[in-house]
Design a protein around this nucleic acid. Structure first.
Lengths: 240, 240
DNA sequence: TTGCTCCTCACGTCACGTGAGGTGGC
DNA sequence: TTGCTCCTCACGTCACGTGAGGTGGC
């Protein structure tokens, strides 16, 4: 009489016919009747049940959880919702972190404009390595500071570093005394650049130290091997 | 020589043996060699490739996208990452909205402490209905205002409403003139409660109006049918 | 000879989407 | 008779987890 066929129910509820078939198949909602030809017939009661199911689905509960709350024990609904909230909250956090990471990568890609896909891969490696040695808030601080300094300036500094390191290495190989004025000048500039990067955050300095100590790849890429570091350290010591 | 077997590679990379089998199966990473017995042998080069794959997987790219960036065209990596960021951002928004909805439900469940699972279902229905007629920020405003008023007070008001509506309905049935002082007193209180709920936000008043107009279930649950509304409106008109 | 590692299927996951092939109803 | 709705399989999705049953290597 007032019974509805699948298509009608689908149109009314916004679900698909396939979804109704599925619910029937897993026993979550089987229509109360069938026509002689085997057409599913949904009663008003079936439809009310379906609306409850859709309601809980819309809150993100799984079909199993919906079945539990609707059939097994309605009192489980509230704990199921609480537990579900925690899950979604966790996913939210994951997504937030992921977006932050992707933004970090994107930012570095913008300031360094990679010349190839492999270059981009290296950028990702660098960012990922950074994440091992700095907490999220530290990375945020570093990024914020970098934005303040500006992409232009960052590129200049990043171009200066290899020259500075090469100059130090040369003096070291020449056997120049670390207290010599030429080395002191280099060490002074070195300290300026480090201070600027660290920006008063000793924890960030410590993270950078740990990264250099633990990552041979970083030492090699930058040329900051133990010898050079020690040589500069000795020069810096006499800077006071 | 330096080639590694699956177990060794798994231990070194933190992936599972099954994952390596899977990558081999789909052709993403097939080990360069096999022993006579058919054991997979991964070269250093295989492992570098695997590390790149793991790197991109960690950023959330699908295996198909990883394959695209690693094999087909490395220059596609950057656009793939941008597009991926948008997807994750969208998921983040979804999760944020879902948590807000679940919190809204939870808050109502706390202040109304349902006596049964069906009661809880009704709470969810109410919250979901609300979401049809108010924007997210409006709902936030209503919730914030409710928190200010306090759960205790809210429960009192919600107990008073049915009494107030019943009193109005009675006068209406008695045929009392809407301008009569008894009705005016009721209308005055009515207006106080409405003003308190609306809290100066005309958009929220409008939303409530649309909800009452479009939701027979709400009219029935509250007893706010057209007759009563009109009767009160006439009384309110002569309030000043 | 006994563990241990490895091998290849192959099903299951979650909630349906998407045909394939066929049959009632206006 | 022609569309339209309905039916029942059944594969595919995504990235593996988890056995099942069997075989090399120390």
């Amino acid at each position: 009489m007032t019974d509805l066929t699948v298509g009608a129910v689908a149109a009314r509820t916004g679900l698909t016919v396939r979804t109704l078939h599925h619910y029937d198949h897993i026993g979550l909602l089987s229509p109360s009747g069938r026509t002689d030809a085997g057409y599913r017939l949904y009663t008003q009661s079936d439809i009310r049940r379906l609306e409850t199911i859709a309601l809980l689905r819309n809150l993100g509960l799984s079909l199993t959880e919906v079945a539990t709350a609707v059939d097994r024990d309605p009192d489980l609904l509230v704990p199921l919702l609480e537990q579900h909230r925690e899950r979604v909250q966790a996913k939210l956090e994951d997504a937030r972190r992921m977006v932050a990471r992707l933004d970090h990568v994107a930012e570095r890609l913008r300031t360094h404009s990679p010349r190839s896909g492999d270059d981009a891969l290296d950028t990702i490696r660098i960012v990922t390595t950074f994440e091992q040695y700095f907490r999220e808030d530290q990375i945020e601080a570093i990024r914020a500071h970098a934005r303040e300094l500006g992409g232009e300036y960052i590129r200049e500094v990043e171009a200066e570093w290899p020259r500075l390191i090469a100059a130090v290495r040369q003096e070291m190989h020449l056997g120049t005394d670390p207290g010599d004025e030429r080395v002191l000048a280099l060490a002074r500039r070195w300290r300026e650049l480090v201070d600027e990067f660290v920006n008063g955050r000793f924890d960030i300095a410590a993270g950078a130290g740990r990264m250099l100590a633990a990552e041979p790849a970083v030492r090699q890429r930058t040329g900051l091997d133990d010898d050079v570091m020690e040589y500069v350290a000795r020069a810096a010591a006499s800077l006071r």
